[in-house]
Design a protein around this nucleic acid. Structure first.
Lengths: 209, 209
DNA sequence: GGATGTGAATGTCTTCACAGCT
DNA sequence: AGCTGTGAAGACATTCACATCC
């Protein structure tokens, strides 16, 4: 599934939001929806909605709007949600535990298949149907489990080492929750959720309004 | 502390990262640092570093670089980290619990002073030195505690209602962890950490490389 | 000499506005 | 008539390149 042009990251993120809005619209029994309505629900403008969708094709009917059911299917395909993804979690602390139980991941097809930690006290614990494994087994287990996405929830000091190891084990997508800027090869998709930076951005906003 | 021009949000976020890099540099005993070195550590370019800093003033010496200690102080002032912030957490579930224990918040001056939940089974529980309070008390407690920032960690369906209530109680900054697009008045700073969207952005990247 | 600070150039994203389809 | 799809314009952010100053 190769795309003609390079798609803005901001567009991809909005696609994810549109999908949510569309599912709500479907639950409300709507069969079609206009770019105006979709913009309203997604917190953007109708022109933005149309432009975003146009990166991927023509999904609407002029004078009518977009068919909800079909558009949901199209966006699911675009985002790669037409199948489930094999995910591993590294770090079985408080944040790891919260992410493990996060139902939205499950619901959207991101299935956590393995959990690793370096703390001997945690290794062997039963988590849901899984057993927390030693991080020494990580590389082998990632390969055997054909893990596609790794979530990092370890302390900042340990995070870069984990990235290096999972990349060497063939993983090409990483979601990092450690407050550190990590390096990975171009070929690896890496996103960092930096909660302290978000808080500081709020502090700045409060001081400047 | 009113800023001359409007500062790009991306610049503010990078300031937060520079601060981290500077603190590391200080711990490593460095007294001065060039925009090149700062860029290297912060994952950006030296021109970007200089441009970002120039929004706020001139902190460097030509031919020399930036004095680490002074620049740390300046950025802390800019971001509003020169004092602590009074924070409340709404939602005492798994994610709320992880955030409550997140040491980086504490370290950076974001002190959680109150926790609320609507579940009677949770109300009254001791969390650290605090007691989980009923969400019925929320408005009063926010005002009495002079809470400046609220973290939302409730289910998506409940999130908008919480925003509306805390805004009416005078709170002007909200960090939302619920997977929902929330509405707030212009005058309120609202950031959403959307973990499912991050995962979907990774899925898209994997499908398109 | 060497690295900052910054206008100018470039690149990227968003908004406009309307032709074109249904 | 109504709403999409899209070039063109505009706004915004990043990068370049160099005069400036320590």
């Amino acid at each position: 599934m190769l795309r003609p042009k390079s798609i803005p990251e901001s567009t991809v993120r909005r696609m994810s939001l549109y999908l949510r809005s569309l599912q709500e619209a479907q639950d409300a029994g709507m069969a079609s929806i206009s770019s105006d309505e979709l913009a309203e629900r997604g917190g953007t403008t109708s022109a933005q909605v149309r432009k975003d969708l146009s990166f991927f094709g023509s999904f609407g009917k002029r004078g009518f709007g977009y068919p909800v059911r079909e558009l949901i299917g199209a966006i699911r395909d675009i985002l790669g949600l037409d199948h489930t993804w094999r995910v591993a979690l590294v770090g079985a602390g408080r944040i790891g535990s919260a992410l493990f139980g996060y139902e939205d991941f499950q619901r959207r097809g991101f299935h956590i298949r393995a959990v690793f930690d370096s703390d001997p006290a945690k290794v062997g614990q039963a988590w849901g149907g899984l057993t927390v494994r030693s991080d020494a087994e990580m590389e082998t287990a990632l390969r055997e489990g054909e893990i596609e996405i790794v979530i990092i929830a370890v302390p900042a000091e340990a995070a870069q080492r984990v990235v290096d190891r999972v990349v060497r084990a063939g993983v090409r997508a990483v979601l990092n929750f450690a407050p550190a800027r990590l390096r990975a090869p171009e070929s690896v998709a890496l996103r960092t959720v930096d909660m302290s930076t978000e808080m500081e951005s709020l502090a700045f906003a409060l001081n400047n309004s």
